[in-house]
Amino acid sequence: MRIRPRHIIVALLAAITAFLLYAARLHTSATPSDNESGLAPPLDMSMEQAPQIALDTHHLDFGTIANDQAAETTVPVYNRGGGLLEITDVRSSCPVCTIGYFDPGKHRIPPGASARMNVKVNPEGIYGFHSQKTLTLWSNDPRNPHVVLTVEARVAPEFEVEPEHFDFGEMEKGTPARRSLVFRSITDSPVRIRKVSLNSDMEKTDVAPLITFDVEELPKPDRRAPERPEYQITAAVSPEMGGGDFEISVFIHTDLKRFSPFRTVAKGRVITPYEVTLDQETSELHLRGRASGMITVRGERPVSVSDIRSEHGVVEIQQNRESPEATQIRCAASETLKRGVHKDAVLFNVEMDGRVYPERISVTVYAYETKPRDNR
């Protein structure tokens, strides 16, 4: 066979390609991952000749900062090794509120020397009145290629809420319960309430809320500072609130530009002479496809359930009275549902000892198909 020039070229290209692939594999196996605790120094360098990064502290506390301007300080970074230390990156867990950086050229630190890292906290990027973020310094220190500095700050508040949350304590099922708190603007830039709801999105409306709110702006004579807005927010628990402990997020939507809404909670314990349980370890029913869910009402004395209904017609209901002390309510998705996620609630009354207690169980249905259920 006669060897032509193109055969030689093809063979050379194949050999070069094989060599490059082999070299790449060697490089990959020799390159440590970010998760490794340290790197070996170059073969011609001992550990004594390698750079070594050090900080005075791993926690920086700014204390209380102004709510309308950034706060800044510097932190010394030391090189206690024998080689040139190079800071290759400073990564923040919250770049919009906490950053660290070196002035140009200051990220290269000779042996035995130090440099100042600038640390800035911007209250405009902080939700609420407290921040704790991290700055991770990456360097060529083979012993410790990255160190973490925790940065903490408290923001001077624009308003205060007194008390901090709605605490209903223990209350009997069906008994009206109301609690109030005061929202008070405490700076010369007034903060006004736009809405109070159980939803973090102000544009959304609470559907059949278990807690409703009344907001009243107090007249100037009743305020701590007459020229600063002050509101009384009153929360009322619905008679349909289920028995047991509850803790529900409450969102106060304001015109404050730095952050909104402000989150607080309403909490308490509802005492009932009976118990309502679900066959799922959740506070509401989740029905997937054609699967059903069970609500059980049980008392130590005779109890009955009446007026059982689906709030929006998404759920089909079947009642089964086990005994005078217990009733089961089987719930399943309606056969006519279209594919998608549907919200509903099962409403019913519990009658016991001559009293009637309204109950409401939220239901989420995940409909996968529209074929009729096979009841055979």
Rank of each mutant, 00 (worst) to 15 (best):
R2E: 15
R6C: 10
I9Y: 13
A11P: 04
A15C: 13
A15E: 09
L20Y: 13
L21F: 14
H27M: 09
A30G: 01
A30P: 00
A30R: 14
P32V: 06
D34K: 07
G38A: 11
P42C: 06
D44G: 00
M47P: 00
E48R: 11
E48K: 08
P51E: 04
Q52Y: 07
L55A: 03
D61P: 03
F62G: 01
G63C: 08
T73R: 15
T74F: 12
T74L: 05
V75W: 10
V75E: 11
Y78V: 05
R80P: 00
R80I: 15
G82A: 10
G83S: 11
L85P: 04
I87Q: 06
T88G: 06
C94Q: 12
V96L: 06
C97V: 04
I99D: 07
G105S: 08
H107L: 02
I109Y: 04
P110R: 09
P111N: 07
R116Y: 12
V119E: 04
V121I: 10
V121N: 05
P123V: 02
E124K: 09
E124F: 06
T136W: 08
N140A: 09
D141L: 07
T150Q: 12
V151N: 02
E152P: 03
V155Y: 02
F159D: 00
P163K: 00
F166Q: 01
F166C: 03
F168G: 05
G169F: 08
K173L: 12
T175V: 15
R178H: 04
R178P: 00
R184K: 13
T187G: 05
S189T: 15
S189L: 11
S189W: 06
S189P: 00
V191H: 02
V196A: 02
V196S: 01
L198C: 05
N199Y: 07
S200L: 04
E203D: 15
K204R: 14
T205I: 14
L210G: 12
E216H: 05
P219Y: 06
D222E: 15
R223D: 04
E230I: 01
Q232Y: 01
Q232M: 12
I233W: 03
A235G: 02
S238M: 08
E240P: 04
F246N: 02
S249R: 09
S249M: 03
V250E: 01
V250I: 08
I252V: 14
T254A: 08
D255G: 10
D255R: 08
R263T: 14
P273Q: 07
V276Y: 07
V276S: 07
L278Y: 09
L285N: 01
H286S: 07
R290F: 09
E300S: 13
P302L: 06
S306V: 13
D307H: 12
R309I: 02
V315T: 13
E316Y: 00
I317L: 15
Q318G: 07
Q318Y: 07
P324A: 14
E325N: 15
R330P: 03
A332T: 01
T336V: 05
L337V: 00
R339M: 11
K343F: 15
L347V: 11
N349C: 03
M352R: 11
D353K: 10
Y357F: 15
P358A: 08
K371L: 12
K371H: 08
P372D: 02
R373T: 03
D374N: 12
